[in-house]
Amino acid sequence: MKIISLFSGAGGLDLGLIQAGNEVIWANDIDKDAVATYRENIGDHIVCDDIKNINIYDLPEADVVVGGFPCQGFSLANRKRTLEDERNQLYKFFYSTIKIKQPKFFIAENVRGILSLGKGEVIKQIVSDFEEAGYITTVNLVNMANYGVPQTRQRVLIIGQRKDYGEEMLFQFPQPTFSKDGKDLPRWISIKDAIDHFPDPDTENNVINHIYSAYKVEYRNYTGHRKTDPNKPSPTILARGNGKGGVCAIPHYNGKRRLSIRESASVQTFPEKFHFIGSMNSCYRQIGNAVPVKFAKLLGEELIRLEHNGV
Rank of each mutant, 00 (worst) to 15 (best):
M1V: 12
S5L: 12
L6I: 12
S8E: 02
G9T: 09
L13R: 07
L17C: 06
G21C: 10
A27M: 03
N28D: 01
D29S: 02
K32W: 00
E40G: 00
N41C: 01
G43F: 03
H45Y: 13
C48R: 03
A62P: 07
V66R: 03
G68A: 04
G68W: 05
P70A: 05
P70L: 10
Q72A: 02
R81W: 07
T82Y: 05
D85Y: 07
D85L: 10
D85T: 06
Q89Y: 15
K92S: 14
I98M: 15
F106D: 08
V111H: 05
L115W: 04
G120H: 13
D129Q: 06
A133R: 11
N146I: 01
I159K: 03
Y165H: 15
P174D: 09
Q175F: 08
I189D: 11
D193I: 01
A194K: 12
I195L: 02
D200S: 11
P201K: 01
D202S: 13
N205Q: 08
V217R: 07
N221L: 13
Y222C: 13
P235V: 13
N242A: 10
G243P: 12
G243Q: 10
I250M: 08
Y253P: 14
L259M: 14
L259F: 13
S260N: 13
S260P: 12
S264I: 07
S266N: 12
V267W: 05
E272G: 01
S279F: 08
S282L: 09
C283W: 07
Q286T: 13
V293R: 03
E301N: 10
E302K: 11
E302V: 09
